[in-house]
Design a protein around this nucleic acid. Sequence first.
DNA 1: AAAATTATTTAGTTTTGTCTAAATAATTTT
DNA 2: AAAATTATTTAGACAAAACTAAATAATTTT
Lengths: 220, 220
Amino acid sequence: MLNYSASEENYIKAIYRLQRQDGTVTTNELAHELKTKPASVTDMMKKLKLKKLLRYQPYQGFRLTQEGGKVALGIIRRHRLWEYFLAEKLKFTWDEVHEVAEDLEHVSSKKLIDKLDEFLGFPRVDPHGDPIPDAHGRMETSKKIILTELPAGTPAVVSNVINQSTAILELLEHKKIIIGTRLEVKKKFEFDESLEIRIGRQPAFTISHQLAENIFVQLV
Amino acid sequence: MLNYSASEENYIKAIYRLQRQDGTVTTNELAHELKTKPASVTDMMKKLKLKKLLRYQPYQGFRLTQEGGKVALGIIRRHRLWEYFLAEKLKFTWDEVHEVAEDLEHVSSKKLIDKLDEFLGFPRVDPHGDPIPDAHGRMETSKKIILTELPAGTPAVVSNVINQSTAILELLEHKKIIIGTRLEVKKKFEFDESLEIRIGRQPAFTISHQLAENIFVQLV
DNA sequence: AAAATTATTTAGTTTTGTCTAAATAATTTT
DNA sequence: AAAATTATTTAGACAAAACTAAATAATTTT
């Protein structure tokens, strides 16, 4: 496995993330995601194609090759292990870990990451509930659904929170919703799409559609 | 405190290190130290002068300004804390930590470093015995002397090992010399400048001049 | 199907950090 | 003190990664 620049790695990561959704990724999508210009994306795509990390014909979208996918999983592994370290060992709050991990993830010593993994006790998910790829690039894939799509009356466990702002953290802490919380939707209100949910035996309470949109759950 | 590029930081660190010895640093010295060309050094010096991190007139040497010194101590703090982390928590051997810390040191979040410091229990020296600057840039300065200059019969404690190769580590482990070891020079041989030393009550043994040159001790 | 719009690429610059080759300054030798 | 050597700087190029402006290709509207 060769070494890639921080910039190349950021592109690879972004393509990986976007192609999960759409299957393929366009120049504009990527430019928007990386807060850069379409022309810069085209330049980098040529470079990554040359390095055989992605397939792309002008005016079609891009997809990572097998090799590109492996590289992406390596970067994601580093990122999520550092996030876990920051939250678990250094007591960073949940909303602070991402930014610092964005820098740490580009330090690419394999030995460092494998030893860090061991030190942390081989964690399987990061502080936001995202799965951490193992040393071979394997990652747990559990079917997650958005809370807004969980049918009323079906028990589920919070597995993941997408938005990582301080604002959402404050709200979740207040509502006592954390990763692992078991909950159930009691009722969905059509008017504002708010949800009434219940945690354990406590009294039910209401959360907004905006909040529910950022929470993923797994059926239990 | 502004942010500097990895390259700028490497220059600052090197100047700091070299000016400890000579008081001032020349273009060629720096080029040699950083394995780069004199022309590149001149370019970077112009830039660092512009940023008021160092003083320099063409054809005279350079010296860091006060601000430059502070920046240097910040980088050294990061480097040594990561070295401590790698050795203490991730169980890297003593000769492996430097290389990885060279990359980690450029991640410049102050919060990260201060929390890392706390997590590690505010260590005062890194795995090679070099002092770690605190959050205010203060660093223990104990007078260290090279083992070759320790007079026979004077008890001292190993405080520092300079050369960080696997080769020297192997030798030191075999001889059971580590940082903190209390020893005494019994005799100095003029012929090959080898030293006979004794650790505690064990039988004395001989070490080469090349080895002794890389060991610093403190009087006790 | 032509026109208008949108998406993408190309061409030409910029910045950072490096390099080589040439020029100049300082020092040492003779 | 002139010549030779060594140290340093300048000039000009290059690669990486970004940008703007212009050109071209694809898609959507009418």
